[in-house]
Simulated assay, not measured.
Amino acid sequence: MSESVVALIVDIVKSRELKDRVGAQRSIREAFEWASHGRPTRRSLWPTVGDEFQAIFFTLGDALLTTSLVRLALPEGVDCRFGLGRGETVDVDEWAPGTIQDGSAWWNAREAIEETHRREHGTAPYLRSWFVTNNEGESGTVALVNGFLLLRDASISSMRPRDRRLTAGTLLGYSQTELARQEGVTQSAVSQSLRRSGGAALLAAHQELRKGQLQ
Rank of each mutant, 00 (worst) to 15 (best):
W106Q: 07
H117P: 00
R119F: 13
R152I: 05
V49D: 00
D153Y: 08
T99H: 01
R86A: 15
Q176V: 12
V5Y: 06
V49N: 01
S2F: 13
P97N: 08
P125N: 10
L179V: 03
T186E: 10
Q187F: 04
E52Q: 15
S155D: 00
E76W: 03
Q176R: 15
S191Y: 02
Q54F: 07
E17H: 12
A24L: 05
E3V: 14
F53T: 07
E208W: 01
G198E: 07
T170F: 02
R29L: 15
V90K: 13
S44D: 14
P40D: 14
D79I: 01
T89P: 01
V132F: 10
L64F: 04
A55W: 09
A112K: 04
R196S: 13
S158W: 03
V92T: 10
L45T: 07
R21Q: 15
E88R: 15
F148A: 07
Q213H: 11
S15K: 04
G140L: 09
G77N: 01
A201D: 10
T48M: 09
K14M: 00
E178G: 02
G85Q: 08
P75G: 07
V190P: 06
D62E: 13
E120L: 12
G212I: 02
R21D: 00
A55G: 11
S188I: 06
T48F: 06
A31H: 06
A96D: 13
F148R: 05
S175N: 06
E120T: 14
V185I: 15
Q101L: 12
T59V: 03
R86E: 15
N146F: 10
D163S: 14
D51S: 03
L60Y: 05
M159A: 02
L65P: 00
T186W: 02
A7L: 07
L209R: 02
T41F: 09
R162P: 02
S15D: 06
R110L: 07
D163H: 14
Q215D: 14
S157A: 15
R160M: 13
P161D: 11
Q192N: 11
R119M: 15
L60H: 07
F82A: 04
T186P: 03
E76I: 03
